[in-house]
């Protein structure tokens, strides 16, 4: 190592060190800091990949004002778990189709990951994944919500998701008549 280092050289070294760091720091809307694997963040989020490539990552915590700490913690958790699992090229979601499942099936750990979330945390995570351009996480979370609807009657779906029924009485009667076959077990 050279003893007499110029200022410019020191700056250069700092930049190199920054670029060499294998994590990035993200800051939630309520000011909490989270470390995440740079490789996983760049691979899983188009938005973070753009920020990393564009050099707009702040070493003291990149501000993500749209995302609360709970959701960001889950995002980071997901990324780090993903970094530790075997990355596979097949994780990119397939196109949506009516007959075939629009998602690649979630892997076992992804299933467990979303299963432990509360409704609120799940919806927040969907929005965070959408904001960060995390296609795979979006697929996994949306898949979880779809699963929660399957096998339920309209009444049960409304109850689970706390949805207001805005059909009129007449419309509901018509739906009941026309779609009786779809509600046979009600």
């Amino acid at each position: 190592m050279e003893v007499d280092k110029g200022k410019g050289e020191a700056e250069e070294t700092r930049k190199v060190a920054e670029a060499d760091r294998d994590t990035v720091t993200l800051k939630s809307s309520d000011g909490k800091l989270f470390e995440v694997s740079k490789e996983a963040a760049a691979r899983l989020s188009t938005v973070l990949a753009g920020m990393i490539a564009g050099g707009s990552i702040d070493d003291n915590g990149t501000d993500l004002k749209q995302i609360g700490s709970e959701a960001l913690e889950n995002v980071v958790d997901y990324c780090n778990k993903h970094a530790n699992s075997i990355p596979s090229a097949a994780l990119i979601s397939s196109s949506i189709s009516f007959n075939t499942a629009p998602f690649k099936e979630p892997e076992e750990w992804e299933r467990k990951f979303v299963d432990r979330l509360s409704h609120d945390a799940l919806f927040d995570l969907v929005e965070a994944a959408n904001f960060l351009g995390m296609e795979r996480l979006l697929d996994v979370t949306c898949h979880k919500i779809s699963e929660m609807m399957k096998g339920k009657s309209p009444d049960q779906i409304r109850e689970v998701f706390n949805i207001k029924n805005d059909y009129t009485k007449e419309e509901l009667e018509e739906i009941r008549q026309e779609l009786a076959w779809a509600f046979y077990d009600d």
Binding site: I96, F98, C142, I145, M149, K150, P154, K164, A182
Partner: peptide, 16 residues
């Protein structure tokens, strides 16, 4: 669309 069965889709369409 993740429901991908006409039956579940119709039920979901009937909620709101």
């Amino acid at each position: 669309l993740g429901l991908h069965s006409p039956l579940w889709l119709l039920r979901a369409a009937s909620t709101c």
